[in-house]
Design a binder for these strands. Structure first.
Lengths: 140, 140
DNA sequence: CTTGGTGCAAAATGTTTGCATCATA
DNA sequence: TATGATGCAAACATTTTGCACCAAG
């Protein structure tokens, strides 16, 4: 679990303690995983049964403050958490709720350029384009 | 209040009743206004004091279903509502929470082009770039 | 051994729902 | 006047907080 190890190092480097509950939370994240606090709780408890919900929330807050993870609000305003790196550019279909990653194509670069013009230091990008996906348009 | 009138017409056209509470909710939205349900409730109650919170939520849901408004989730996952038209491109400073509109510059067009390539029909765009604004960087 | 981290339970917050009443179309 | 809309209060879901105890560094 290289990714997990890297995250763990990050926590210690920032001067925070690396505890079993925190390891359990970190361990459930693969790359590009989008998980709700409740789902994280359920999964992490498998490796650390004593885990409480409050600790999940506190750990997610810590990880967010450290710039390791970030919440994304998609359906109904409930958050899912994901690793912060990379651009998160989504086409969200409001019919079938399918989320398509909108890859590359100079989008991230365009955004960086615009941000630079505003002297803004980018930490994370999130683009959500809402509408109707190709499949649902046909099925109309 | 041309905008308000236009929205009211939209509601009737869709076969819904135009009631005082709904007019009160609609009336608080200027253009580019981003308001939380609670703030909408507070403002709308000035023109219609009997208004209840539930009606605000129900009206916002209706307006969202009609494609007139949309929720945006910025700070701490609490929604703010805004008119759906136009691109909503924000630079969000995680130090001071200031939100800067990232205007034009071909961004909306770039996104449209990419969506078209995916045969995706755009209804609304939302870009959130998180990071540190110019002012806060200096103040470091 | 010191300080930050944890789990539990209670509290706070934000949103939804059931229902009797009201008013638009 | 029929049906959809409203306000109220209770229910609900999610997140935060207080506190005594625990363990990583």
């Amino acid at each position: 679990m290289a990714a997990g190890t890297r995250l763990e190092t990050h926590i210690r480097a920032a001067g925070f303690k690396l505890t079993p509950p925190r390891r359990a939370v970190l361990s459930v994240f693969g790359k590009d995983e989008h998980l709700s606090p409740e789902e994280i709780f359920r999964r992490a408890r498998k490796s650390h049964p004593r885990l409480g919900r409050a600790t999940v929330y506190r750990t997610l807050e810590l990880l967010t403050d450290l710039g390791i993870m970030r919440p994304i609000y998609l359906h109904g305003g409930r958050p899912v958490f994901t690793r912060i790196e990379g651009g998160h550019h989504h086409l969200v279909c409001s019919r079938c709720d399918k989320i398509t990653e909108l890859a590359g194509d100079g989008l991230a670069e365009t955004i960086k350029r615009l941000a630079k013009r505003n002297h803004f230091e980018i930490r994370s990008q999130l683009l959500e384009v809402y509408g109707v996906c190709a499949k649902c348009r046909k099925r109309k």
